[in-house]
Deep mutational scan, measured.
Amino acid sequence: MPSETPQAEVGPTGCPHRSGPHSAKGSLEKGSPEDKEAKEPLWIRPDAPSRCTWQLGRPASESPHHHTAPAKSPKILPDILKKIGDTPMVRINKIGKKFGLKCELLAKCEFFNAGGSVKDRISLRMIEDAERDGTLKPGDTIIEPTSGNTGIGLALAAAVRGYRCIIVMPEKMSSEKVDVLRALGAEIVRTPTNARFDSPESHVGVAWRLKNEIPNSHILDQYRNASNPLAHYDTTADEILQQCDGKLDMLVASVGTGGTITGIARKLKEKCPGCRIIGVDPEGSILAEPEELNQTEQTTYEVEGIGYDFIPTVLDRTVVDKWFKSNDEEAFTFARMLIAQEGLLCGGSAGSTVAVAVKAAQELQEGQRCVVILPDSVRNYMTKFLSDRWMLQKGFLKEEDLTEKKPWWWHLRVQELGLSAPLTVLPTITCGHTIEILREKGFDQAPVVDEAGVILGMVTLGNMLSSLLAGKVQPSDQVGKVIYKQFKQIRLTDTLGRLSHILEMDHFALVV
């Protein structure tokens, strides 16, 4: 994948999101292997301009796509893939009243899908469409860049269908997702969380590099694949309309690839034109409109599966009536509230959605109805927002919020430890010299600072030695090549209790 991002070429006709291997024109390309080798690009942008032909009021008969309808489940399912879809609609009884809503608040519980998330729908649909058009064949390999849930859905379907599955996901995604993927037989590649989507090191860039190296491999490409919004247009939206008897006044959905909100909203605009569509985008993402909503100094966020630093091709923002931004604290607070007060075992993005819903639905009156999409299960986040310690460490809970008995030293300040200034190293000294210094002084790690004293990161003896043994660096290389740029900081005025929580999850903390 090139470091400079080429513009994806656009073909003359058809839909841009065809499933299957992508040609340089962004659509299915038939021909000899030699032709494909000559024409197939190194990668295709996940934010390529959409060429979708959908228009409100256009006859369904003019759609270029294969459409399906929700099917009634048999008493005995032939395999677990038949437990994807037909998820329950559940009334939220307490939270709406707590925040003064007059309307009825309903939750579409997508964590009841077989793999635990709304992404099971698009995973199965992308595979079925690729099999139907002859792209996927027995023994082929599926590769997908994902925040985890699409990966789980694909790995689940691949396990049943017999495909090899490789999932490329950023490091910030939970260990629970990784464990589930491994249990399903998927191979996992992790990428830096802070890598831009168009960087060769991003999950998108690495996935395309693997595709170019592995024979008979395919990126189904949830960011561009029409099967993504079509899955929701054909099934999720129809289920909502049936469950609500066609009567709903507002739908609120958090947005990642945009397939969920695009597919549902398009069908609702056709069948229930008075329904307002509300999009939820986390602070630090750029999906919301108008652009002024996205202006923030924050560039990272903890909530998973929603928000991006690019506009995915499948996201149709014209069908969203209003956007709201959400933050991590309210997302996790509301997710825990949904679990504790409503018994809905949902993930953090569901918290984002409901946090926005109780604001947006203030305009609705008694007798009206708001539906929220709860995308995934708490299963993926047992060591994250479900953990009091994690919430404390991230600053989303305060010590006084917890009532468990603490040891005698818990409320003492870090400054009472009488710490001395640490050994520091410059980023320009060599790895070999740094190892000598650390061994001589008896230290395992040291902060790396520039000549102005600005902290650049941390270097550890173990990481340097393993990097040297693996051949990633040489003793003569500058130590700046092996620094940890993500590390926890703590102030002298913070409590030892807070430091204790940090050290339970990290090997060190830097006192500043």
Rank of each mutant, 00 (worst) to 15 (best):
L106C: 11
T68H: 15
K94D: 03
S32I: 08
G100L: 07
P6W: 03
I152H: 00
I166A: 04
I188V: 09
R18K: 15
R132M: 12
R224A: 09
P273G: 09
A71M: 11
E131Y: 09
R224C: 07
C103E: 01
D79T: 14
P145S: 04
S199E: 06
L230D: 05
P2A: 15
M250D: 01
A8S: 05
T146K: 04
W54C: 06
N149G: 07
K119A: 05
S63L: 02
S217N: 07
P16E: 09
E37Q: 13
G256H: 00
N194T: 11
T257V: 00
E171T: 05
H66D: 12
A159I: 04
G263A: 00
D245S: 09
G57Y: 08
H67V: 14
D35Q: 10
S73F: 14
H66R: 09
A231T: 12
R51A: 03
R121G: 00
Y163E: 02
V204S: 03
G57H: 09
K98N: 11
I167M: 10
H203V: 01
L248Q: 09
Q55N: 15
S117M: 04
R182I: 07
T257K: 02
G258C: 04
S73T: 14
R45P: 10
S175N: 12
N212I: 06
D249A: 12
T53I: 14
A253Y: 06
T235Y: 15
Y163L: 03
T260Y: 00
M250S: 00
R125G: 08
P49V: 09
S117L: 03
N212H: 04
D133R: 10
K72T: 03
A38S: 12
A195Q: 11
G274M: 12
E201R: 15
R51N: 09
G258K: 01
L105M: 04
I188G: 00
R164F: 05
P16A: 07
G14M: 12
K269D: 02
G20Q: 10
D86Y: 11
P59R: 06
P200W: 08
W54S: 06
D86P: 10
S147T: 04
R58A: 12
E171C: 04
K211R: 12
I261K: 03
N225Q: 01
I240W: 02
P138I: 07
C275I: 14
A195K: 07
N194W: 11
I152L: 03
S174M: 01
A186F: 00
H65L: 02
G246H: 08
E176R: 03
P200R: 12
G116T: 13
L241N: 01
R45F: 06
R132D: 10
H66I: 11
I167C: 09
A237F: 02
I95W: 00
C272M: 12
R266L: 00
A157D: 11
A155M: 07
N93K: 08
D221F: 08
P33C: 07
C165Y: 02
L42R: 14
G11P: 05
P273T: 05
R209S: 11
P41E: 11
D133T: 11
T5D: 03
E4F: 05
M169P: 00
K247W: 08
G85H: 09
K97N: 11
K271E: 13
G162Y: 01
P64V: 03
G263W: 00
S175T: 13
G185H: 00
G153P: 05
P49R: 09
E201W: 14
I84M: 12
G162R: 07
G185D: 01
P2F: 14
M250A: 05
R209L: 08
S63H: 08
D245K: 04
L181T: 00
R121K: 05
D198Y: 07
P192E: 08
I152Q: 01
A69V: 13
P46H: 03
G162V: 03
E171F: 02
A207F: 00
G31R: 12
L81P: 07
K177S: 03
Y163G: 00
A195W: 06
K267R: 09
A38M: 08
A157K: 06
I188Y: 02
C275M: 10
E213T: 14
A114L: 06
